[in-house]
Amino acid sequence: MKGVVIAIVVLAMVQLMLVPSQAAVTCGQVDACLVPCMSYLVGGGNPQKECCDGVRSLKGLASNTVDKRAACSCVKAAANRYSNIKDDAAQALPAKCGVPMDIPISKTTNCDA
């Protein structure tokens, strides 16, 4: 009986290792991070503290390549939903917040690259 239990545990562990990894970052999370930035993204100027806090949170959410690609796709989709977002303001957002990002914020980004 003990051998059967061990075999089941080993099979379960092997199966978990074979499951393809999925992005843990959702577009809802990305949108929530960037909602405080809308006034900056539309009007320019300087982003508010809440916006920069959201950019920091977004960077923390996307810690591996899969998550970064998912976050990039969500950012791109959000940018394309709002035609009044200034692309130059979006691209400058991480620098203005002092947050180095591996995720470009643009309507035209190739998220697979």
Rank of each mutant, 00 (worst) to 15 (best):
Ala24Gly: 11
Ala23Tyr: 12
Tyr40Asn: 00
Lys49Met: 12
Val55Tyr: 11
Gln29His: 00
Ala12His: 13
Lys86Ala: 05
Gly98Pro: 04
Val4Leu: 15
Val10Phe: 11
Arg81Phe: 02
Ser83Glu: 05
Ala32Met: 10
Gly43Trp: 09
Ala95Met: 07
Ser73Gly: 07
Cys37Asn: 11
Met17His: 12
Ala62Pro: 09
Met13Ala: 13
Met13Tyr: 15
Ala78Ser: 10
Cys51Arg: 02
Leu34Val: 05
Cys27Asn: 01
Asp112Lys: 12
Val14Asn: 07
Cys72Pro: 12
Thr108Gln: 08
Glu50Val: 05
Tyr82Ala: 00
Ala23Asn: 09
Val66Tyr: 09
Thr26Lys: 08
Ser73Glu: 14
Thr108Lys: 10
Cys72Phe: 03
Val9Asp: 12
Ala12Glu: 08
Gln91Lys: 09
Ser106Cys: 02
Gly45Ser: 05
Ile103Asn: 03
Thr65Gly: 03
Ala113Asn: 14
Lys107Arg: 13
Ala90Asn: 03
Leu34Asp: 00
Leu61Tyr: 12
Val35Arg: 14
Pro94Ser: 10
Leu58Asp: 00
Tyr82Asn: 04
Leu61Lys: 07
Cys51Ala: 08
Ala79Gln: 09
Gly60Ala: 09
Val42Asp: 05
Cys27Glu: 06
Thr65Phe: 01
Cys72Tyr: 10
Val4Trp: 12
Ala89Tyr: 11
Thr65Gln: 06
